[in-house]
Design a protein around this nucleic acid. Structure first.
Lengths: 220, 220, 220, 220
DNA sequence: GATGAATGAGGGTTCATTCAT
DNA sequence: AATGAATGAACCCTCATTCAT
């Protein structure tokens, strides 16, 4: 009720504080996971890293799973923030938009590698309602990929029996950069990874007559 | 012939017991993970599920990580046991062999869904030497995919700049059936999943002149 | 002057708390060992005896061996606190100083009988660096005995081929009051024990011409 | 009844077996303690070292403490076996007999260093009746020292207000070679240790007129 | 007599969570 | 709003002891 407009200054201040505290903690969590691995995130360690007390975390998050959920959500938020922009900059061509979206996904994943892995961990609350939220967010944030694919199909540039599966696969391949980083880092850079995976996927869905137009994307 | 050398019956009995205990414990672990999630596998819970005492587990496994490693290895062993057979039954055609291999992978994953997820968890000992063993086993067990792909390329049926990446992607897609089961189960059966993913991947690597021969694999 | 530098009150309070908690735990350990023997000191038992939770112990000590080391160090600290004072009060005569030192040692041992025995137990961490620390502390705290002996030799009151061995023997005899308490308590009081042992040792090292001056120490 | 004489052959065989099993286990315990320290004696380790099964140990010993008690008793038995012989070989002189006895004690201790330390460990059953047995045995086995001292006093060679205390101290000094081995081994050999300690003790109890006769024992 | 697989209480340790200040 | 000392359930692991074979 008081959320959208006419917020009294006290509440506004409170919200701003909550916002900045969340940011502070989420950033600390990211740093911690980057430095020590995502197993090392204990509440105590998180508090120390963020420069606050343990108790304070519980003022802004209900429990540890809430924090983890927020970390994951944070990554998904980065998707919503960056992918649409990248898509918009790619112009009107749906295939170029698709490529731009995938590239942006991969870059975000690369910047949050350890947080991205979290999604694949089973934790108590993530089974109940957290799982549902993540699912929904994941679907929402993969919308740009789906849109570009559908556009491409509509425009006759792509041929895909199940565009949603292709979109999901691309998401998966972006995640795979984090999940299997120990494997890929031995043979590839991120840019090379993006190019190679994009090429493979596109070769499976591009319509024959459009091949020539996207030779740069298809030829590795 | 059946064993290594002059097996004294006492040792043989002991080995058989160890074998069956391992089986019993690994099966219990699988059941437990299936029922409560792979986070719920405490040594106490495992003992209870297997109907033995905690102490007994330590007679057959050095520590908890050894158990987890064994669970993972168990899946990988199922690969080595089943995939080569499926490939052999597929005949000589490298593309058919590839399809058979992927199908077999997916079936094994489906039968060990929760165990398969374990590989993606970071655990203490899995970072040190366990990680190395898993990597190696993963590479070994994915060999059939790689072989079929290389054969296909050599035979001119497939065109792939990086066959190893394609093989790894297929492995990933098989794992994805377990990792993202909550997503796929809403829209697909396992068989449909296999067919769809195989179609997509093949369309990206099949050589133009061979398309007609594998129309059944390519058309969903 | 009293502390190191610009003590902010918060840190000071924390230090005071840590101090008092340590005291509380070490006293509980002493009581426990007194009542149940030094084998009975489990972390749980210690927590219960001290009226705190197990977890709290780990806020003040790294692990169980740290606790045991602290218990031992505590005794050695009592030596450093009490022996020099006793020596100082004994005047200038090196033999009187020696007697005073030994008496003080025995009294401290008597007050920490069970803790004193700990030094003779082999424990995991006590082999590595703990052992080294104890050794060093033991040597340091037995310095007053050595000093008095060397002084006595220098002053011509004592004759000892190996004063350090004599000093070590006295230390041992002090410990023996704890180690063999079940034996000595049947026939002696602490005071009688001190007098008798001192007499024996002194008779072995006193120079002939000084015998008369210390008749009170030599004649039991 | 059947013990002293006329033992039926079956019982005799049983006794002999029990005897040899005990020996086998006690020797294994000694080896184990020598090699791994006296903390490392678990029932399993002991069984393995002795080349028997765990269960068998319980046929010959009631529980672990019984084994430990037997190990200790074994050392005390070695005293009764060796010390009287050494004393007998020393001739008639009570002081020489004392010296021979102490030397023999120290040698036995040196051969069973780790077992000797066991006496100073508190364990469950050692408090109850085991303690009593050990006390008694300790007193019995130190009899040669006491005898020699009393003889010496009677012969006017020694002057000691409390000969029993002197005897007990010598026992303690023999033990100290094991208890404080880490200290003494840095500066002394066993022979030097014996000579030095004997010298110190004797100087405290030898009667003035006998000093010359035992100059070899008194001068280090 | 002998085995060794099996038990399970108990030990040390960690860490999410609470609450008095 | 913020702190951090305190809690205690839960975890992994060991080892003396038992008992069916």
């Amino acid at each position: 009720m008081s959320s959208s407009q006419a917020l009294d200054p006290q509440e506004a201040a409170r919200n701003a504080l909550a916002q900045s505290r969340s940011r502070q903690l989420l950033d600390a969590a990211a740093r911690l996971m980057e430095r020590e691995g995502s197993e090392a995130v204990s509440m105590q360690a998180l508090a120390t890293e963020a420069g606050v007390s343990v108790g304070l975390i519980y003022r802004y998050f209900g429990n540890k799973d809430d924090v983890l959920l927020a970390v994951i959500t944070d990554v998904l938020d980065a998707f919503s923030a960056k992918v649409p922009i990248a898509v918009a900059e790619a112009g009107e061509d749906p295939v170029r938009k698709l490529a731009a979206a995938f590239t942006a996904y991969c870059h975000v994943i690369d910047e949050h590698r350890h947080a991205a892995v979290l999604t694949y961990r089973e934790s108590k609350s993530l089974d109940e309602e957290g799982r549902a939220r993540i699912k929904q967010l994941e679907v929402e944030t993969s919308q740009p990929l789906r849109d570009a694919l559908h556009d491409g199909v509509a425009a006759g540039r792509l041929t895909a029996a199940d565009p949603d599966l292709v979109a999901y696969n691309l998401l998966l391949l972006a995640h795979a950069w984090a999940l299997k980083h120990w494997y890929f880092e031995r043979t590839m850079t991120l840019e090379r990874y993006i190019q190679a995976q994009l090429g493979l996927t596109l070769r499976g869905v591009i319509s024959p007559k459009s091949r020539r137009s996207y030779a740069d994307l298809l030829e590795p």
